[in-house]
């Protein structure tokens, strides 16, 4: 019993954590972020399984995670009002070539981040961007003028 409950608690914790961390960190994994992710996974695993080495335990934890993930996506599909909470909302960071400082601050994005993202999509100057949007998965989308 406790194994499933621990998995639920960790799922909720991870969900809240991803909401707090913000889109930018999730969208761009730097080498240090990758190391943190591995350590995070190890710490979570110990908290959930403790000394349990069984297949049954692994099935229960993975099954609980999968079930909760499906539940969240179903809630997001069935109740559109929950989407901003469950999936977050895309944020406009450039409008008509002008960076929106308030939104950049909120997501801890710099102009350098924007120009780097623009370069990756073959855009030389931010002034050429009609809209830049920080998507819910942390990636930047650019719509040119």
């Amino acid at each position: 019993m406790d194994l499933v409950l621990r998995a639920v608690a960790m799922f909720v914790f991870l969900f809240v954590l991803t909401r707090i961390i913000g889109k930018r960190e999730l969208g761009s994994l730097q080498p240090f972020d990758l190391l943190l992710l591995i350590i995070l996974g190890d710490a979570l695993q110990q908290g959930m399984t403790q000394d349990d080495y069984s297949i049954t335990g692994a099935v229960l934890i993975v099954g609980t995670f999968a079930s909760l993930q499906v539940l969240l996506s179903w809630m997001s599909f069935r109740f559109p009002r929950t989407r901003p909470i469950l999936e977050g909302e895309p944020i406009i960071v450039i409008q008509n070539g002008e960076p929106i400082a308030r939104n950049l601050r909120r997501e801890r994005l710099t102009i350098d981040d924007l120009t780097e993202g623009a370069r990756r999509q073959g855009i030389a100057h931010l002034a050429d961007v009609h809209f830049a949007i920080l998507e819910t998965d942390g990636t930047l989308s650019f719509l040119q003028k």
């Binding site: 019993m1 406790d2 194994l3 499933v4 409950l5 049954t56 335990g57 099935v59 229960l60 099954g63 609980t64 999968a66 079930s67 499906v70």
Partner: peptide, 21 residues
């Protein structure tokens, strides 16, 4: 299939696979 996974998890909550005393 998903239903089966949910059932297994619920059985786990009901202590079917241990370890509540």
């Amino acid at each position: 299939m998903l239903g089966l996974i949910v059932v297994v998890c619920l059985l786990g909550v009901w202590n079917r696979f241990g370890q509540t005393s």
